[in-house]
């Protein structure tokens, strides 16, 4: 055994993953409060699928199953995916997405630490392309709903695909971002649209609180030094700046920056997805380029593109650029390019 002979006590991969999972809990609580128990069911379903897929792949690849299964990375992927897709969804949607994420995006590349694309976002993109209709059935916030869906009803819908006596349309609606886009296309003015019941004071009703909880969790991760400030700050600042620019040009057509920061996957993306170690750049400058690009693409895709939200695609596109970014942003090494006196 060669040096060093000491390690930081208590530092391990599973500790990092568990801390990130813990940082997601406030947002999950808010999710439950505003949208009902569906999120809990989809979280459990995704976690079980992820663990099963992970175990199967480890077994196939002759890796020590127990040692890797407990590292927490599969569960984190499952949670991020579950938090990105509509919680009131048939079981196969979650299972297909999670299994694809773990099997194709993670293990075909060699498992933990080797994947190029964020598995959760690959799962999301696959579902978005393959089942676009199902992916727009978001539950109505409880305070707006005529018919709050309870625990047993959710279970029933998840596994049978139907609700007794209620039409699915009655309990779901489009997301605030989607609504905004549709209404703008119908030539309605921004001020008018913002008065619709689905919108809260900044973003969507309920979703803005969830976004704030993601922010809280992200600050916790920053404080624990799990993530660095570069990615989230450059991401959010770029998103806000671009939004402010367009909002300044035409406030009637473009939503204010606060709206963009607090709706959709912006906060989740900034603190939990764009900061994924394996698929993000490793250099400080690279992280800033990455974060800024994701923020910019996020705005472009959600405002001008064909999808309601751009977080998954903007992250995947930038994931592809990570090796290139890393190669061109290597920091100056001690003793290189020293200034002549």
């Amino acid at each position: 055994m060669s040096s060093p002979h000491v390690l930081t006590p208590g530092s391990s991969v599973s500790n990092i993953m568990l801390t990130v999972l813990a940082a997601l809990i406030p947002a999950i609580g808010a999710y439950y409060y505003f949208f009902g128990p569906a999120i809990l069911i989809s979280l459990v379903l995704a976690s079980v699928t992820a663990l099963a897929a992970e175990a199967a792949m480890l077994q196939l690849r002759n890796y020590p199953v127990k040692y890797f299964l407990t590292d927490g990375s599969a569960v984190l992927t499952a949670w991020l995916l579950a938090l990105s897709i509509p919680p009131l969804a048939p079981w196969w949607l979650i299972v297909v997405g999670t299994a694809f994420a773990i099997v194709v995006a993670k293990h075909l590349y060699g498992g933990l630490g080797n994947n190029l694309f964020n598995p959760a976002m690959v799962g999301f993109a696959v579902l978005m392309i393959s089942f676009p209709a199902t992916m727009t059935h978001w539950p109505t916030p409880l305070m707006l709903s005529q018919h709050p869906v309870g625990f047993s009803e959710t279970l029933q819908y998840t596994f049978s695909g139907a609700l007794q006596g209620v039409k699915l349309d009655a309990v779901t609606m489009a997301t605030p971002l989607d609504t905004l886009k549709t209404q703008l296309n119908l030539q309605h003015a921004m001020g008018e649209i913002k008065n619709m019941p689905i919108f809260g004071s900044f973003g969507g009703k309920g979703t803005e609180v969830i976004a704030a909880m993601y922010l809280l969790g992200g600050l916790f991760l920053l404080q624990r030094r799990i993530i660095t400030w570069h990615t989230p700050v450059s991401f959010l600042v770029t998103l806000a700046l671009v939004a402010a620019l367009f909002n300044g040009i035409d406030p009637g057509r473009y939503a204010p920056p606060m709206f963009h920061l607090l709706t959709g996957g912006a906060m989740l993306g900034a603190f939990f997805i764009a900061t994924d170690y394996v698929t993000a750049p490793t250099t400080p400058r690279g992280k800033m380029i990455f974060g800024a690009s994701v923020g910019f693409l996020e705005y472009v895709i959600r405002v001008f593109g064909g999808y309601p939200d751009g977080i998954a695609f903007s992250i995947l596109i930038m994931n592809a650029a990570v090796p290139l970014i890393d190669a061109y942003t290597q920091p100056r090494v001690y003793g290189h390019d020293t200034k002549p006196e």
């Binding site: 190029l116 993109a125 696959v126 472009v300 593109g305 998954a312 995947l316």
Partner: peptide, 20 residues
């Protein structure tokens, strides 16, 4: 093989530009 998978996923990512 993995190059093909990667090309597929890259293509998936670029679908995000659809509609621009």
């Amino acid at each position: 093989a993995i190059a093909m998978v990667t090309a597929g996923l890259l293509s998936l990512a670029f679908m995000g530009f659809a509609g621009l």
